[in-house]
């Protein structure tokens, strides 16, 4: 990357006449970016498409997702119902489209709290060290001792059904990896010369943490977050599948798969369709994660 930009800069200096201006330069710049990191590009496109589907659900979905039509229950794919209807006569395609709103919104929202808490705690603990570090490390050990789904399911059960419980359960479980990643990086940076210099300059600890250390560690939790969203989508769908997720009749991919499983031998599309939606969304996010890791040279 560094070499390429310097060549480009030299080119600019030597031949000002051939400098592309305005839109063309931006277009060629974008083209080069795509070729440099096709993974990231493909991922961003898939993720943007799924988000577009979620946003445009009222326009894209031909039917109301919770409108029942019992006379047309379990009708196979047809011109009006592209993927058929479920056991209550609801249009499967429309439900998959509308479910993207719920699954994506809950998944993206449930990344925020663990990201913020984990990163903040990791920064402080990595910087301060000592007894506080030891206590937080033990707390993390306790959380990690529980198999992920066991603790999430037990917490959702105890907190009662609903989206709020899902947020809290996911937050309690998944702040740990963010904390561990950021803590490790902070500990390395703490003894680096530029931090020592800031300390000699008698900057406040908060200023050193926020202005000198945080900007240098933040890319790692961001890359982790891109794969964490996938884990959250899977967790939400799994909870829905087990009957502990977003309460019905709201369309949700996992719950739809569970419903469809009963009519397997006749209408396999009911269970397969929503799963494809999960896989496509997750695949796009995984590509973004790989692409970001490559762009920022983070080893995973």
């Amino acid at each position: 990357m560094g070499v390429r930009t310097s060549i480009a800069a030299r080119g600019k200096l030597l031949s000002p006449g051939r400098r592309r201006s305005g839109a063309a330069a931006r277009f060629w710049g974008a083209g080069r970016a795509v070729r440099a990191n096709p993974t990231l590009f493909a991922g961003v496109i898939i993720v943007c498409l799924t988000i577009a589907v979620a946003v445009l659900a009222p326009i894209l979905a031909p039917f109301d997702p919770i409108d029942q039509d019992l006379t047309h229950a379990l009708a196979g794919p047809s011109g009006s119902h592209w993927l058929g209807t479920d056991s209550l006569g609801r249009d499967v395609f429309s439900r998959i489209v509308w479910a993207s709103r719920i699954d994506l919104a809950v998944a993206f929202a449930s990344v925020v709290a663990p990201f913020v808490v984990g990163t903040a705690v990791g920064l402080v603990v990595g910087y301060v060290g000592g007894r506080l570090d030891a206590i937080v490390a033990r707390m993390a050990d306790v959380v990690v001792a529980f198999p992920v789904y066991v603790l999430i399911i037990a917490l959702v059960f105890a907190l009662g059904p609903g989206v709020a419980s899902i947020f809290i359960a996911i937050a309690i479980v998944s702040w740990v990896p963010y904390m561990r990643i950021v803590r490790g990086e902070t500990r390395i940076l703490r003894s680096r010369a530029f931090v020592e210099a800031a300390r000699v300059g008698e900057f406040s600890h908060i200023r050193i943490l926020l202005r000198h250390i945080a900007p240098n560690v933040i890319s790692q939790p961001i890359v982790y977050a891109s794969s964490d969203v996938i884990r959250d989508i899977l967790a939400i769908a799994t909870l829905g599948y087990l009957g502990l997720g977003v309460p019905p009749p709201a369309p949700e991919w996992g719950a739809m798969i569970a419903d469809g499983q009963e009519y397997f031998s006749t209408d396999w599309m009911l269970a397969v369709g929503p799963g494809v939606a999960v896989v496509v969304t997750g695949f796009g996010l995984a590509l973004v994660g790989d692409g970001l890791a490559r762009a920022w040279r983070i080893d995973r």
């Binding site: 794969s227 899977l234 599948y241 499983q261 397969v272 799963g275 999960v278 995984a286 590509l287």
Partner: peptide
């Protein structure tokens, strides 16, 4: 494989396996 595998819900893979080999 990891990129695709990461995105597949286990319970869904299970249902597909039932569909193919069981049903």
């Amino acid at each position: 494989i990891p990129t695709v595998g990461l995105a597949m819900p286990t319970f869904w893979v299970g249902t597909i396996l039932i569909l193919i080999f069981g049903v």
